[in-house]
Amino acid sequence: MTPAARTQAAIDILDEVIAAARGGGAAADVLVARYFATRRYAGSKDRRAVRDLVYAAIRRAGEVPVTGRAALVGLARDDDGVAATFDGSAHGPAAIEHDEAAAVAGAVPDWLSRALSASGLAVADQAALVARAPLDIRINRLRADPAALATELGGEPIAGLPDALRLPTGTNVEPLAGLVEVQDAGSQIVTLAACAKPGQHIVDLCAGGGGKTLALAAAMDNRGTLLATDIDRPRLSRLPPRAARAGVTIVEPRLLDGGREAAALADWQGHADTVLIDAPCSGTGTWRRNPEARWRLTPARLERFTTQQRHVLALGAPLVRPGGALVYIVCSLLDAEGAEQIDRFLADRPGWTAEPLTLPAGRPRGEGIRLDPAHDGTDGFFVARLARPC
């Protein structure tokens, strides 16, 4: 593919990404993969170059661009090399008109910028939300010696996380499946709030594919009981093979029926030492990996997330034994999903208290701790640990 043809391919893909963002369609990485699945002539360098153009344009435009061409024209305004590819050649885009509309540069949509600012995240720090994310891994101490594997792999150690490494972007970790898990340092840090120990009885209430479940199992030294639940069958189905590769045998996956979760969890009422809730959320802390997600979020969708969060908190609280703890996590930087949810929870449940947390990164926010890309170099998270009265 010529440079011009690569730019036109990026424009075509961006048209699909924009339509998907407006209509709730597939994610950008899926659309990129689909595009090249029917274009076998494109080599690996072509695919990489086109993907880089697509994501550069997505990261640059805070508001949803009108078209894919407008997104790339905006990128061309900042990059003479990209501008030169608008040459009107047979497979390339037409030349840019002098007064042609271009996507406006920005970190996030205006309404979200205001909401983040109101939640204590300065405008100057919001650009970090869409910067490129590093490659962090957690070494699985059930199957590998962290020190030995760290020496073998190289990479950078991450302060406060003896099982973590930051590897060069693009490192192929697939041959290490089971020995390591790809997991952002922030995700590893907030999981520490569970204070998981061998022999405990723990519930991972919104387990999904099991990233935090497997981290909990390693902290428990594969001893105790670990119930992993979710209402999403496809996501939860990924946990058993991952657990098998990781040598984890204490996990019981349990698929819940939405709206009937309490009945399915009756055998755990008042039994768990810790209930970890990695709640469904806006994902404002994970835009480094999914930058087009900020185009999908609306005030109405945010309200649905906060309603779901109140639901899972109400579902998890009765599972905690007297004297036990509930750990609430969201990969969001909005107070509506973090500090304000905890304030509401404590106001509605006399006797419950927020326990102080000491974590390797993050800063106090309300009754919890918040991590963000600008200050901590991790994905964004809010975490709080709540103790049930004895």
Results as ranks from 00 to 15, higher is better:
I231Q: 11
G92S: 14
V330R: 04
A19K: 05
L227F: 04
A266I: 07
E181D: 15
V30S: 02
A279R: 03
T306E: 03
L121C: 06
I342Q: 09
A4M: 11
L14W: 08
V108L: 14
E340G: 02
C206K: 02
S117G: 04
E100Y: 04
G316W: 12
I158K: 03
V30W: 00
H271R: 13
A133W: 00
F345T: 02
T298V: 10
G62T: 01
Q188I: 14
A144D: 08
T353I: 13
F381A: 08
G351V: 06
N172S: 08
A49M: 02
R39C: 02
L31W: 00
D12I: 07
D230G: 09
E261V: 10
A387P: 05
A272H: 00
A217Y: 10
A128D: 12
D80C: 07
L205R: 00
A361N: 12
A5R: 15
H98Y: 06
A374C: 10
E156M: 13
V32M: 05
E337S: 11
F382E: 05
G106Q: 07
D29K: 01
A127F: 01
P356T: 09
L192T: 13
L297G: 03
Y41V: 04
R51N: 13
A128C: 05
A147S: 03
L315Q: 12
D110R: 12
E181Q: 15
A70W: 05
T38V: 15
G270W: 05
R310P: 03
R39E: 01
C331Y: 03
E252N: 09
E367K: 10
L216V: 11
E340C: 08
L75N: 07
D267K: 08
R40G: 13
D267S: 14
I189F: 04
L227N: 10
A218T: 15
P253M: 11
D257N: 06
R48G: 15
A131M: 07
G208I: 05
S237E: 15
A84R: 15
C331T: 05
R34W: 01
H271K: 08
R238E: 12
D273R: 01
P157S: 14
T38L: 05
A20E: 04
A185I: 07
G154P: 10
Q341S: 08
A37Q: 09
R138W: 02
A94R: 13
H311Q: 11
L75E: 06
A84Q: 15
E355V: 07
A131H: 12
A26Q: 09
P299G: 06
R260F: 09
T7M: 01
L265E: 01
R296E: 11
T7H: 02
A243W: 06
P93H: 07
G338R: 07
V173L: 11
D125E: 15
R388M: 03
A164I: 03
A374M: 08
S113Q: 09
G106M: 08
A76W: 02
L276W: 03
R344Q: 08
E261I: 04
R254G: 12
P3V: 01
Q126S: 06
I202C: 11
L359N: 13
R40K: 11
L239Q: 04
H98N: 11
